[in-house]
Amino acid sequence: MDIDQPIRHVDAVAFQFSRIKKRIFRKKYLKIYVGGSIFLALLFASLLAPIIAPHDPAKLDLTLKLLRAFESEDFILGTDNLGRDLLSRIIYGSRISLLIGVVSVLFAATLGALLGAISAYFGKYVDELIMKVVEIFLAFPFLLLSIVIMAFLGPGLTNIIIALVLSRWVQFCRLVRGEVLSIKGRDHVVAAKALGAKDMYIIVRHILPYTMPSLIVMCTFEVALVIIYESSLSFLGLGVPASVPTWGTMLAEGRTYMMAAPWLSVFPGLAIFVTVLGINLLGDGLRDVLDPRMRGR
């Protein structure tokens, strides 16, 4: 059959297109789409904050203080006790949340995955040593550990990322170690060894790619978790400097006006809630697709 015949060709294209459409709009991807759109919207909001935000988030105007939400068209979500636009502050706050969430998870995942892979691959005393360190880290309640580290380092964006990386890498380490233990005995790894490949080369090229599906899923859940913990730390005054708007500090400031001006805490809280929900949905959907143990359920 000659598929270059024009009319058949058009048919084939239409057929292909309908198949692709079917493949993309499958029910099992629903979570990914919903979660992904929330995440993307957040990403755009944070990248385009100066364009989207109706006001300067730092601009004080005491004549406009504590405007109610939905009362004024100019300040849709109202203003805080210093007359700053709440919506603009929430939009700018997403920058910090997202930056901290993504960056600290990236670092924690890299550090954890490498150490976990090394631990499982070399085994013996290397494994003992790394796992003992992991256990020590796990023995501390996570929030307490971050608080202690922040108290040492002092507030600041870099420091909060360091604190979160130091307290979250162990989760990745344990996950990857378990995966690598089962992968390192596979034939293609033995084959690579028998061909004289170097250990680190085998780890990076022949083992770590296999841990990617579970690692990606873990990363999304961790981003959500880290965003919550960043807010908690900021709420406790251990986060970024107070001049930078973050959802956590906004919650903390709004707490004082909880009865008089509940919108000051409700909307930042809602922002955290929707963000975490979206990222968790994304992670859940990704797990359904990527994790072979969950497939077919």
Binding site: A191, K193, A194, L195, G196, A197, K198
Partner: peptide
């Protein structure tokens, strides 16, 4: 490691 693959292969 230098022997594997170069002198003896499997």
């Amino acid at each position: 490691r230098r022997i594997r693959g170069k002198e003896i292969a499997m």
